[in-house]
């Protein structure tokens, strides 16, 4: 997955707008073949960075909106992400020659804290973050505090996502934050908390950088903090 953070680069004339819309629609269709065909057709007609930014990435944003509104579902998000990756791959050569920069959005370690076996919400957040262009290391549920630290060091993570679905395990989020401090990692690693009992107020209290209400918000907050 790739990320291009800027808006309509180079301006959008009518011909380009149509081109971008075709690419965007192909991603929203969640069909890899459609995306490949659209990229094939668009190649060389506008800079690769623009094709990705204003076409493919715009389509992926639309997929995110449709997911939030209950119109597209998790398999569709993954299919769209896979299709977009294929499209970006096809533009790699041109990206190099046009000087376009492409990179992962950031590295995120995601897990449910120790004592809490809930997995599904956290898995959806991991999937959405991955689909949005982050490198996600989902280390599962009921994760011992030290394992978060080890994985953060191993992957050189920029952010850690801490999930808890029970009031009794919420404290585990704070324990991870404390251990981050002890290991001298807190200034380097952003912390996002989530899960049913977590709130904005709790995020402030436990020393996290942000709280996300749902998977879509998790993506938005991660972008806010890391970009």
């Amino acid at each position: 997955m790739w990320f291009f953070p800027h808006g309509c680069k180079g301006g959008c004339n009518t011909a380009n707008e149509e081109l971008f819309k075709t690419l965007s629609d192909a991603v929203v269709s969640c069909k890899k073949d459609d995306v490949i065909a659209a990229v094939e057709k668009a190649k060389g007609k506008a800079p690769a960075v623009e094709l990705i930014d204003n076409g493919l990435a715009a389509g992926m944003n639309e997929v995110g909106v449709l997911f939030e509104r209950g119109k597209l579902f998790l398999p569709h998000v993954m299919m769209a992400a896979d299709a977009m990756s294929a499209g970006v791959e096809m533009l790699q050569d041109e990206l190099g020659s046009s000087g376009g920069a492409s990179s992962k959005l950031g590295v995120i370690v995601n897990g449910t804290v120790e004592g809490d076996v809930h997995d599904i919400g956290k898995a959806i957040v991991s999937t959405m973050l991955q689909a949005a262009g982050f490198e996600v290391h989902d280390i599962g549920r009921d994760v011992p505090v030290q394992n978060f630290i080890d994985k953060i060091k191993e992957t050189n993570a920029d952010m850690v996502g801490l999930s808890a679905l029970m009031t009794t395990t919420l404290q585990g989020q704070k324990e991870v934050i404390e251990l981050l401090k002890e290991n001298g990692l807190r200034d380097k690693v952003k912390v996002m908390v989530g899960g049913a009992p977590a709130t904005d107020a709790w995020a402030k209290k436990c020393g996290a950088d942000c709280y996300a209400e749902n998977a879509s918000e998790a993506v938005a907050k991660a972008k806010e903090l890391l970009l």
């Binding site: 398999p75 299919m79 896979d82 898995a123």
Partner: peptide, 23 residues
């Protein structure tokens, strides 16, 4: 249904499969 998926149950965890694009 979460209890029916690995590691709690017999069926492979769809969250893990999805992340590996095994839709």
């Amino acid at each position: 249904m979460g209890l029916y998926y690995t590691p709690d149950g017999p069926f492979e965890n769809p969250g893990d499969l999805m992340k590996a694009f095994k839709i």
